[in-house]
Design a protein around this nucleic acid. Structure first.
Length: 270
DNA sequence: AAAGACACCTGTCCGC
DNA sequence: TGCGGACAGGTGTCTT
């Protein structure tokens, strides 16, 4: 489910309820996420959350004792509850704040994770080798061009590699390539610097627009208020196989690249 | 080093 | 209405 815009939407929604506030307790009803929720997560009890940050698709709850690392996987979401409610199906973990507000983590497929680290979360093995933030310094056409030299894999696969740039999942990779007019299957190493400048700009545009719309809800993404995101209305190719291209009217095509659905316009993208 | 397949798990949708 | 199969927003791990 969540790519960078959905995770950022979640972060913004829950930050006011956790930043500068103390955690009363953590309730784990189902520890079997992608990795078992560790017992050390109880280190969070009594800690004040200094900041809630996002790195790629990870959420980092920093405290003086360490940090909770959270990932939403394919189907995860976090809701804020201001009054007690009985947990529903797949609502595996609650972070209960001292003032009674709570974060409820839901993840039907359990591909997400909740971990604890006593050290710097950015040095954690899962985060340490991540590429630059697409909306931060260090990302741009030059970066993509440099890293892509000698690579023969499709540019879409390259763009979705978190060591190249974080946060770009299947929806936004498809959309950015459409906006940049680049064929997803084109070998990454055979694209010019100029075209990478355009691609980097397209990535930033589509991510910014999606964040502004509260993310993309395809089936089940909800924000911290339980509301869907509206960016699905602005998708040009993703999920639109057979429908006319918004640029030229040619039917949008569907293929498979690295086992992921790939949508493109054979006329607008080269 | 890089590329590709596979695994993890549940829900939903489609065709028969 | 039921059932099997394909597919879904991610990513670590293993094999070529």
């Amino acid at each position: 489910m969540p790519e960078l815009p959905e995770v950022e939407t979640t972060r913004r929604g829950i930050a006011p309820y956790v930043e500068g506030r103390r955690v009363r307790t953590v309730v784990v009803r189902e520890p079997r996420l992608r990795w078992p929720v560790p017992a050390e997560l109880s280190q969070l009890h009594g800690q004040t959350v200094i900041s809630l940050e996002r790195r790629g698709k990870y959420l980092l709850f920093r405290t003086a004792a360490g940090a909770m690392i959270m990932h939403l996987g394919m189907s995860g979401s976090v809701r804020v509850l201001l009054s007690p409610q009985p947990p529903r199906r797949h609502e595996h973990v609650d972070i209960v704040m001292e003032d009674g507000a709570l974060l409820r983590y839901q993840d039907p497929r359990r591909f997400g994770c909740i971990l604890w680290t006593a050290g710097d979360p950015l040095r954690h093995p899962l985060l340490r080798d991540l590429g630059p933030e697409p909306l931060g310094p260090g990302f741009g056409g030059d970066h993509l061009h440099r890293l892509s030299r000698g690579r023969r894999s499709p540019v879409k696969t390259f763009l979705m590699d978190a060591q190249v740039v974080v946060g770009v999942g299947n929806i936004y990779a498809n959309e950015a390539l459409f906006r940049a007019g680049i064929l997803p299957s084109r070998p990454a190493g055979r694209i010019s610097r100029e075209r990478y400048q355009r691609l980097a700009a397209a990535v930033q545009e589509v991510l910014r627009a999606a964040i502004a719309a509260g993310g993309t809800t395809l089936r089940d993404f909800i924000d911290s208020d339980g509301k869907p995101g509206y960016f699905s209305q602005e998708l040009h190719v993703y999920g639109r196989a057979g429908e006319p291209c918004t640029g030229c009217g040619e039917p949008v095509r569907l293929s498979r690249l690295g086992q992921r659905a790939t949508y493109y316009c054979p006329r607008c993208q080269r």
